[in-house]
Amino acid sequence: MVNEPGKTMNKDNESGITRRKFILSAIIVAILGSFASLLSLLKVLAPAKKGGGYVSTISPGDTLVYASGSNIGATLRASSMNPGDAVLVYPKGKSSNPANLVQLIRLQESSFKAPTDVKLTDKGFVAYSAICTHLGCTVSWVKNEKSPDASYTECFCHNSIFNPSRGDKVEGGPAPIPLAQIGVKVSSDDSLVFTSNFNGKIGPQV
């Protein structure tokens, strides 16, 4: 049916819709609809998460190797470290996952206090996740030459300080939780192996 122009403009039209109103709402719906359909692009631009976050793939029995320095990738020798020393290590062959980065520390055997899990330490060796729980930087070792047991772990990004003889609990700065501990032991050939998984959450707590 073809409407005569005069009739459609008539306000007494039964439906109460004028041509102007109809076109205006059509334009509004078209604009809103096209923008709304574009929103699906946001889904495309944000790819699906693969696992996500820091998930460690360390398994008990993995050998510790250097993660930095000149002998990167070489097996770590227990005798090369004195109390007060610390190094960054990876489990052998699993260096591509940053969640596996561990800080191995040697202190005096007598210096560990709660909440350190002493069962996870061996001959003064203690290991913690090296990924700061604040914003994911790698922590560093601040060595005290005079009294090695007063050395501590610090994240140089925002100066969070962790106490290695007390289970790496947060002694200062913005880190929300301690660095998780992981078990290590010295094997007969002077190398070190992992004996457990992390005992807590690792990576930034966001």
């Binding site: 914003l135 560093s140 140089f156 947060v170 700065g173």
Partner: peptide
């Protein structure tokens, strides 16, 4: 990129947020 994090500071205009991040106590969540 390497496994260690260097001692670093952002450019001056981010120092405000950077400095504020350092002041917040960690147990405030």
């Amino acid at each position: 990129p390497a496994s260690g994090t260097p001692v670093m500071r952002p450019d001056w205009y981010f120092l405000i947020v950077y400095g504020f991040l350092k002041l917040i106590p960690g147990d405030l969540s």
